[in-house]
């Protein structure tokens, strides 16, 4: 394996690990589903009947993606695409709420009432995670393309 490939492989694993850890850190949504549903409601973007459905589905989609990124290498690329899609959706929702003006937390990492309200930092954090997803996908591609050359 060339040094380039080692760097790409490291970047891929590193980015996957960070994204997985971030997704799995949302476990509190599963422990307290009603609190997360309230967070989703507070975005005021979905009709009433979709609030609980979306909150229950997204919390598990995050966890399943996190588990796949850590333990199922064959499905990692798919999980990265989904994680990227989720980050785009969440960032859009946060952006709209910031423009409208909100005093509430996004519920991303804590449902506690004393969690800080969403801000530009929430968007910056999502942007960084999205960049990590992109990095992982890019590094994986480079790594894979080069593998047959040395085989």
């Amino acid at each position: 394996m060339t040094s380039d490939q080692k760097v790409y492989r490291f970047a891929y694993w590193f980015a996957c690990l960070i994204v997985a850890a971030t997704l799995l850190s949302g476990y509190h949504k599963i422990l307290y589903p009603a609190d997360f549903a309230l967070s989703v409601y507070r975005f005021h973007l979905l009709p009433d009947f979709l609030v609980n459905i979306a909150s229950l589905y997204f919390q598990w989609l995050e966890i399943v993606c996190g588990i796949v990124l850590l333990f199922i290498p064959k499905f990692r690329v798919a999980a990265l695409w989904i994680a990227g899609g989720l980050l785009v959706v969440f960032s859009g929702a946060i952006g709209i709420s910031l423009v409208r003006g909100t005093a509430f937390s996004c519920g991303c990492f804590s449902n506690a009432p004393d969690a800080l309200p969403m801000s530009g930092m929430s968007l910056a954090r999502n942007g960084a995670l999205l960049a990590l997803c992109g990095l992982a996908l890019y590094a994986q591609r480079k790594w894979r393309i080069k593998l047959p050359d040395i085989m």
Binding site: L56, Y57, Q59, W60, L61, I63, V64, C65, V68, F75, A78, A79, W81, I82
Partner: peptide, 12 residues
């Protein structure tokens, strides 16, 4: 991607 989306729904 379809499998992950489906599995997440079933687990939820």
């Amino acid at each position: 991607i379809g499998i992950i989306l489906l599995v997440s729904g079933v687990v939820a």
